[in-house]
């Protein structure tokens, strides 16, 4: 469960919302409307004000590194600090299972990061995040660079996460995707959550 009360920061008007266990909430809006700012603020990556709770843990009472392990954020353009994918993802049965589900070979853990395509980057970054098993997922346009088949596999994986009780806050430009994955859709424009509709 993710509960946000009066969250605000420069460029973002106060926002309050609650996402239950196993629920997905989509944030839609034009580029530059503030979708990513909300996700970054919830992940506590930029200075912000407001109260955020995840599964009973108060953000202000939780050390930031621990908070980000519980509340996993996938940026639209994920960064990499090592040279190969394996420097970021430890090989395990669950990781191999995730690779298979996203149609990536086991050897992809040995691939150099510099040679990844945008789609591979996006899927491997999602696996890197899920390997930490966060209970809340903040996903910034997680399928924007994927072809139809890869998009379907990612959506199937996210549905499995939802059925395991994970809460998801997702930004997307694809209304059909929002309808497929999420129970509620919020609209945001110029940093203001202006309308919510089912």
């Amino acid at each position: 469960m993710l509960e946000i009360v009066n969250l605000h920061r420069p460029g973002l008007s106060p926002v309050s919302l609650r996402i239950d266990d196993g629920e997905c909430l989509a944030l839609m809006g034009p580029s530059g409307s503030g979708k990513s700012l909300i996700l970054r603020a919830v992940a506590d990556l930029d200075p912000n004000e407001g109260r955020v709770r995840a599964n009973g843990d108060e953000r202000s009472q939780t050390p930031a590194p621990l908070w980000r392990q519980k509340v996993g954020f996938l940026p639209a353009q994920p960064g990499w600090w090592g040279e190969s994918v394996g420097d970021h993802i430890e090989k395990s049965d669950s990781v191999l299972d995730l690779l298979h589900k996203l149609h990536l070979p086991d050897e992809s853990l040995n691939w150099p990061v510099s040679r990844l395509s945008t789609g591979e980057t996006q899927r491997l970054a999602l696996i890197r995040l899920l390997a930490h098993a966060p209970k809340v997922l903040l996903l910034d346009e997680p399928t924007s660079a994927l072809d139809e088949e890869a998009r379907k596999s990612v959506e199937a994986l996210l549905k499995a996460q939802l059925s395991n009780g994970v809460s998801i806050l997702l930004t997307t430009h694809d209304k059909k995707q929002a309808n497929r994955l999420c129970q509620r859709i919020f609209h945001i424009n110029k940093g203001v959550v202006t309308e919510a509709f089912s």
Partner: peptide, 9 residues
């Protein structure tokens, strides 16, 4: 790259 590390805890 730095932020990627921070994001993962």
């Amino acid at each position: 790259a730095i932020e990627a590390g921070l994001i993962l805890g």
